[in-house]
Amino acid sequence: MNNAGDRMNYYPIGLNLKGKKVFIIGGGKIAERKISGLLNTGAEITVISPDITDALKKLMNMRKVTWLNKTFSPTDIVQAFLIIAATNIPEINEAVKKACSPQQLLLMVDNPEDSDFILPSVMNQGKLTITVSTSGASPILTKKIKRNLSDQYGPEYKDYVDFLYHCRKWILQEIHDSSLKQKLLTKITEPSFLYSDNRNEEFKQMVDILQSKK
């Protein structure tokens, strides 16, 4: 078996979709799952489908998505930045692909090999985001790895990463000594801060002690 020619080398990135137009073609459960991962990105989400699920209707009523109650036509996606063809009709998904321009990003749920990108499995704990992908080789293995990471990086990381965010922001603004700055940024990632019930006060004490040594 020769796999070398089949290998796809993906370039992992995090997209800023705030204010960007994202179109989902299809209104079923697959579209519902894809949209759930887009809701907190600030994207302008439009669903094109003659029918949508009850969950998507709720999102529409909450004005979190826009619904175009129609079958797909090529002119629908002219203004789109990112497009997901999520119907269960291969001919429609293929028509979406033909309508896309080279500057648009397309995901075809039934044909990832012919898409511009794939979506990794995502685990979130607040600002902490961990993505897992086997580049389509084994979605089952991806799920297993995600479960293992979920056990390793539990809910305690949500508040901890918020703490790191605010501390880093303060350190970069207030500490001008480069060596002290680096030392503080390193110290706050130690396990003692992760499991502390009083990490903010401990951080202040650490800053005072290290500054006094300068």
Rank of each mutant, 00 (worst) to 15 (best):
S133H: 09
S179F: 14
Y160P: 08
D151Q: 14
D114A: 12
N88K: 08
P139D: 11
S178R: 09
M123C: 02
A137E: 11
E190W: 08
A137Q: 12
E201D: 15
P90I: 00
N61A: 12
F117L: 10
F23P: 03
S73T: 11
A99H: 05
N198I: 13
I77V: 09
I171E: 03
P191L: 11
T46E: 06
S49V: 06
Y165R: 06
S212E: 15
T87Y: 01
Q103S: 12
N88F: 02
L128W: 10
L185D: 07
I24F: 05
T41V: 00
E94N: 01
Y11H: 10
P90W: 01
S178Q: 14
L68S: 04
V132W: 03
G126R: 12
E113G: 15
N111T: 08
S212K: 14
S179G: 09
N16Q: 11
L39K: 09
D151S: 14
T129A: 10
N148Q: 13
K143P: 02
P191H: 07
V207G: 02
I92D: 02
T186P: 05
V161Y: 07
R33D: 07
G28L: 03
G27S: 05
T131L: 00
S150G: 10
L172Q: 13
M108A: 08
Y195H: 14
G136P: 08
I145W: 03
G5F: 11
I35V: 13
F81N: 04
F193R: 01
K214P: 06
R7I: 14
L185V: 08
N3Q: 11
Q152D: 09
Y11T: 07
L172I: 13
I171Q: 04
E44Q: 11
S178D: 15
S150V: 08
T66C: 07
L172H: 13
I188M: 04
L56D: 04
I140G: 09
N2P: 12
T131M: 02
Q205A: 11
L17Y: 00
P112E: 05
L38T: 04
A31K: 00
A137L: 10
S115W: 05
N148I: 12
N111D: 15
I130L: 15
D110P: 03
A31Y: 01
K57H: 07
L82S: 02
K98P: 01
M62V: 02
L38S: 06
A95E: 13
K98N: 11
K64S: 05
Y157N: 07
L119A: 10
L38Q: 05
V132F: 08
N111G: 09
T75G: 10
K144V: 11
V96F: 04
I77H: 01
N198P: 05
T131G: 03
A137M: 10
S192A: 15
L59S: 07
D51S: 06
Q173H: 14
M108R: 03
P74Q: 07
V47D: 06
T46Q: 08
I188Q: 03
K20I: 03
Y195P: 00
T142V: 09
E202L: 11
L17F: 04
V161G: 09
Y11G: 06
I13A: 00
L82N: 00
G19I: 08
K183R: 13
I118D: 00
N40M: 02
N69Q: 15
V22D: 02
K20C: 05
N40Y: 00
E94M: 04
K213N: 15
L68N: 05
S115D: 08
